[in-house]
Design a protein around this nucleic acid. Structure first.
Lengths: 344, 344
DNA sequence: CCTCAGCTGGAAAGCGCTTTCCATACCCTG
DNA sequence: CAGGGTATGGAAAGCGCTTTCCAGCTGAGG
């Protein structure tokens, strides 16, 4: 066999080797409605095996007019929140024999539209975008336009976030979760709270903040604007925000960080200040790898893997008449980081 | 415009709209060595923009005979070890305007070959496999054969692991890291050790174990076979192994878990047994999200993101004469989980 | 004024498949 | 034994691009 290196085995090679036509080889090897005689099919399959034939997916995609590609857009794959959701998406993709292509926006909202355009070019069958969309108008509009173009060309889209664009969405009940959490914390006897909010403009963070405030208001517990500090959505952001809050010299019983990662940063800051046993800390998400921090973190558990699964399942199912949405609630998990305050 | 829904804008549409030929449109829009008059190029570009044209990547790939696809195979994207490496790979991919397609083997070694075959079909430009390859002979052989076929068809491959197959490899110095760690722990005064080893047959785990044993042997510190317990490479695996070890009633001063995640499980078990302050614990990897556990974990820091970057960079660079390898060392980080023992 | 080189636009081949559409062979019925 | 299905293999069109190759036009040089 005198194939140059650097060129792959093609179906034509297989056909020749098996002594049949290209059409027959295709039918035997890659399936079809048409039948091919068992004896011949066997011959073709053997040839394919011997040559280590792997069908050219690009060519198949072109000929069939569809791909098995799922695009997944996350903000940061290193963040356990996103990697858990990604795991869910990948699991469903695998079950459907689809391959997933993934992109990280590094929290730059303008990247989303760019990646959608790229995926549109790849003729992806579906796109899942998981992100706390910002409220940046221009980026959102551009994303919407790209998504429309993608859908017009036959693709399907699901978002994991707020209901911000007219496409299928898995809505995470951030607001309700935070509201529940507030109620539980009040039930533990806490009355004076601080909040480590995320970056301004990040909707997930904003929703959790406002949900928490609603929860407090519902029980007539006040929250001074001075007790709310914004910071990055990261461990260090939580640490910095906590320091800032401590610096304001407020009397704190409990701190709510809008995600677990920030909460961990806050706990570190409190520990350094020797306050880790006197100030309660609560987070949000229930990140798996963080379940063993001490004291164990009170939080709102989000079924992240399931969220990823739901998103891809929704997008692979029969389309509805209009955009659908599926709501996922979190569940408050009380742990040692909020031991509570004995009623006085 | 009477395009059916469900079919995308094609270059031909753009050409017609701009009143030029297909060839010219291609040259204007997707670049070429050939020049096209500025006035015409402008007209084509405008048409493309107005129609929201996105070139069909499959078609381009076919015509050009190459893709911009990088395949990444990991064991479990939810595991922070892998997601950090993935982040590194994705960063380099983005810088090179390549898109990455990712697959999780869920720690089933036979999946690796299967995914390589799929990526070969997609005519991926490069594949990065990061995994602690098992010593399962059959799976390894099959993987080797697939990789050879992939390289023969012009693809490039890099492994992150041990030097087990004749391809470019980023070798993580697990053995040396564990050896150093042992030396440091001995320096802290510890003399009686337990080891929570990973699953049998998992090479990464085996290397760390044997490196640690070498380190002890080098200082003439004995380690009874009875003090080594194998367990899953997970938090729960570490927990279970620790329980088992405690059950053996040995006199322990310090425990080495072969990765951080197991170490965290072990710490939980020790805490439950009331031994968390009397037995030292060390891990391996220095997982970012675990840097805030208390007591802070002594470990061997691995530059995970950089490892991912190095792997893709190696594979995108000019190929060497033969398989190359690049060695990455870890650095011992002593923290509070191993306070040490005062010399008696 | 003719020739030839140098530009640049267009026609068409080809990338590796799938899928009509034909053609042939076979089997059944009357 | 003729006529009409019914299988099943093969030829060829077509998917959306890139890239030769060809053709027409322009301007320079003799």
């Amino acid at each position: 066999m005198t194939r140059r290196p650097n060129d792959a085995v093609t179906l034509e090679d297989v056909a020749r080797e098996a002594g049949v036509s290209l059409a027959t080889a295709s039918r035997a090897v890659n399936g079809s409605t048409r039948k091919v005689r068992p004896e011949i099919r066997e011959r073709v399959e053997r040839a394919a095996r011997e040559l280590r034939y792997a069908p050219n997916a690009q060519a198949q995609a072109m000929a069939r007019g569809r791909t098995t590609l799922v695009g997944l857009i996350v903000q940061d794959i290193e963040d356990p929140y996103f990697s858990s959701i990604a795991a869910g998406v990948m699991r469903v993709a695998e079950a459907n024999r689809m391959i997933v292509s993934i992109a990280s926006t590094q929290r730059r909202p303008d990247k989303e539209a760019e990646y959608v355009a790229a995926l549109r070019g790849m003729r992806a069958a579906a796109i899942v975008i998981v992100g706390s969309r910002t409220d940046e108008r221009a980026a959102l509009d551009r994303l919407g336009a790209e998504l429309t173009a993608f859908e017009r060309s036959g693709g399907r889209v699901a978002l994991v976030s707020q209901r911000r664009l007219p496409v299928d969405t898995v809505v995470v009940a951030n607001r309700a979760g935070a509201r529940d959490l507030a109620a539980h914390l009040i039930g533990l006897g806490y009355r004076s709270f601080g909040v480590l909010a995320g970056p301004r403009g990040l909707l997930t963070a904003a929703d959790r903040l406002s949900g928490f405030m609603e929860g407090l208001a519902g029980e007539a517990v006040p929250l001074s604007p001075d007790a709310v500090v914004h910071g990055e959505f990261t461990r260090d952001g939580g640490h910095a925000a906590m320091m800032e809050l401590l610096g304001r010299g407020r009397d704190l019983e409990c701190v709510f960080a809008v995600n677990d990662v920030m909460a961990v940063g806050a706990m570190a800051a409190l520990r350094a200040a020797g306050l880790d046993r006197s100030v309660g800390v609560a987070g949000f998400d229930d990140i798996v790898t963080l379940r063993d921090v001490t004291p164990a973190l009170t939080t709102v558990r989000l079924p992240l893997v399931e969220i990823g699964e739901a998103a891809l399942e929704m997008v692979l199912s029969e389309p509805g008449d209009g955009p659908r949405s599926q709501r996922v609630r979190g569940e408050v998990v009380l742990r040692e980081s909020t031991p509570g305050i004995r009623p006085r």
